Computed example of a mutant assay.
Amino acid sequence: MSRTMEWAARADHLNGIPRKFVIATIGSFAKSVASLINTTAVHNADTLLRLVRSRPQGVPLITVSNHMSTLDDPVMWGFKGFPIFDTKIARWVLAAEDICFKNPLYSYVFRTGKCIPITRGGGIYQEHMNEALERLNNGEWLHTFPEGKVYQDDAPIRRLKWGTASLIVRAPITPTVLPIIHDGFHEVMPEKYMFGRRPPLPLCNKKINMIIGDPIEFDLQAMSEMAIAQSRNDSFPTIGWPRTSSGLDEAAQRYLYTTISDKIRAAMEKLRCYGKSFLKS
């Protein structure tokens, strides 16, 4: 399976000029929406800024968040003080292929903007997940929305898809995983505004809140050993996944990805509850 416009996603494509232009344009849009026509408050921003700017050499970063609107990325990075115009440290993000890559123009813009197309329902071993893994192998920053779709209701974090967990396990250097919870994007870009559609432009005079958590720690060796032991007693339907580089078969992978996803979900839900009490105080 070929990768969609992979050449446009390269840093040296046309000497990096298209990437700089797209990042600058989208960054200006994000700053305007987050900090000019709306107000954004961020709790614990220093943790995110430190990990984005100066984490250990070669260590990848995965940020995970809830997904409240089609504007979450990039507007969530538009708060004051965030270096959104720096193309070198800018995030890669997993983006829905059926929305962001509908035609060649969209594909080119999103590709130069460091987006990786993901086919929803395509599985964790689809070709573009391998591309995401390569970005992590290079020590870069990847953002994911592990719930897998937009949810605008005030409800607990849903069961997470396994894609993020699989990247954590398959990466040669275990990524730093940082949970983020935000609120307010459902008012900036409601899914059903006029005639059951989104508004043509972001709405203004809204309040966006972001709660940055602390990195989630994973003892992958101990968790893998537990997965191997537990999966021997459980029956999972198999679809032919390859073994991981550490030798985990499909049954062990499924158990491990579930365990990791549950841990991430618990951290996100804790942040969500903290955010609700924090905003009321």
Rank of each mutant, 00 (worst) to 15 (best):
L248Q: 06
M1N: 10
L14S: 12
K280F: 04
P18L: 09
I212V: 15
I157N: 09
F79A: 06
Y193L: 07
S277Q: 12
F185K: 06
G148Y: 06
M76S: 04
I211G: 00
R158L: 13
F110H: 14
I208S: 01
A252Y: 00
T119S: 11
I212K: 07
T258F: 02
A132F: 07
S166T: 04
P215N: 00
R135Y: 13
A251D: 07
D154W: 05
R19Q: 13
Q57K: 15
F185P: 08
P74F: 00
T112I: 03
A171T: 15
A132L: 00
T119P: 04
W77M: 15
S35E: 08
Y255T: 06
Q126S: 03
S69H: 09
N137H: 07
S166D: 07
S281E: 11
I116E: 01
I37Y: 12
N103E: 02
P237T: 09
I37L: 04
K114Y: 05
A41K: 14
T176W: 02
D46H: 09
P74Q: 08
G247S: 02
L133P: 02
G247Q: 04
S35L: 06
S65Q: 05
I173C: 07
P74A: 05
A34D: 04
W92T: 07
S65I: 01
N66Q: 03
S281A: 12
I260D: 03
A267Y: 04
H13L: 07
R159P: 12
N138Y: 10
M194W: 11
E187K: 14
I23R: 13
R243E: 14
I124V: 14
C115N: 14
I228K: 06
F195S: 08
K102Y: 00
V93E: 14
P215D: 01
P200F: 02
V93Q: 15
N44S: 09
V42K: 10
M194H: 11
F195A: 10
R159Q: 14
